[in-house]
Amino acid sequence: MSEKRIGNYLLPPGIEIFERGWLSANNIFLFGEDDVSLVDSGYCTHQQMTVDLVSNALKRHNLSGLNKLVNTHLHSDHCGGNAGLLKEFDCEIWIPEAEVIAVQDWDEDLLSFAQLGQDCPRFSHCDQLVAGKEINLGPYRWQILAAPGHDNHSIMLYQEQHQILISADALWEEGFGVIFPELWGESGFEGVAQTLELIEELPVALVIPGHGKPFTDVKKSIATAKSRLDYLSGDTDRNARHGAKVLLKYKLLEWRSKEMSAVKSWIAGTPALESIRKQMNLCSGDFEDWLIQALVKSKAAIIEKDCLVNLD
């Protein structure tokens, strides 16, 4: 098999990266003699594609099955394929320690799916990821690191020997994921700062983010992320407006096109957006109109025949 280079970095054996579109988080396939694991599983509408990606990788490397599925955090784009993979491969599912009770009880108030207006088929877990401990994934031992900010229960995975960081949504090449805790009155800005400081202290040669291509210029990406954090934390309304636009854009990626009445109904029925509406001190109608027009103005969507249509 040909060597895989990312910039000047040679990806070590036993690691494949399935770079996905924005509706599904990237998947990392890790395989060795004693273990075959996958990190994150994508969105539920893509779960058959995720199953197919894993099945094809197993065949390509003459592997018998998938042992473990590890979720960096429980947002629907990272765990929406869990149920499908569990059914297909009967694999162990590992989730962050802080999410155990929520998953055991399938508590809609603790899980984010309903709050964000998204879907995730119910799944069960086998074990938990505890920050400060280590886990075998494929042929390597990985450190489990706490990564609060985007999601205060999120973890990252670090492989010291090869200096690889699986950063999930804590660090992208051009920023990081929406700081959701701030949208419902919890601390998030400080968590992002702490996580970026942790990454800065690590010798990292390659970052595999939750979205977008893997990258090697970690110093530049951290500087970009810090600048972004300063901008968002300077005015909490900025983070709220950004979060609202991301949530609608994400849903539109799933819909592709939706009647305007259904779009407004979804906005009104999504608890996280209702919190943002109150923070912005707008009435429901004004908020719905503002949010739709904000997406259009940013050229992320167009209005066509009384439908909101996604623009890639």
Rank of each mutant, 00 (worst) to 15 (best):
G80T: 05
T216F: 03
C307Q: 15
M49D: 10
L58M: 12
C44N: 14
A25M: 00
G234E: 09
E190I: 09
V130Q: 11
K305F: 07
Q48G: 05
L295E: 00
H78A: 09
A272C: 06
G80A: 12
C283H: 08
G285A: 10
T50V: 12
I302P: 01
D230K: 15
T224I: 15
S187W: 07
P181E: 07
K245H: 06
G117W: 08
N152F: 11
F287C: 03
D169A: 03
R238L: 14
F215V: 04
G285Y: 03
S265P: 00
P214V: 01
A300T: 04
T72K: 03
Q194H: 14
V100R: 13
L183Y: 06
Q104S: 13
N26S: 05
L253H: 13
S41Y: 00
A114P: 04
V263N: 00
I95F: 10
H46G: 01
R238K: 14
N67R: 03
D151W: 09
S55R: 05
S64Q: 14
M260H: 03
A300K: 12
F18N: 01
V263E: 02
D40W: 00
Q143I: 04
F189R: 10
L291K: 04
D40I: 01
A168D: 14
Y250C: 05
G269H: 14
L116G: 02
C283A: 09
F18W: 05
D217L: 08
A114T: 13
Q104E: 14
L129Y: 00
R141Q: 13
V39W: 01
G42T: 03
F29Q: 01
F215W: 07
L10S: 07
P209N: 08
E304T: 06
G81Q: 05
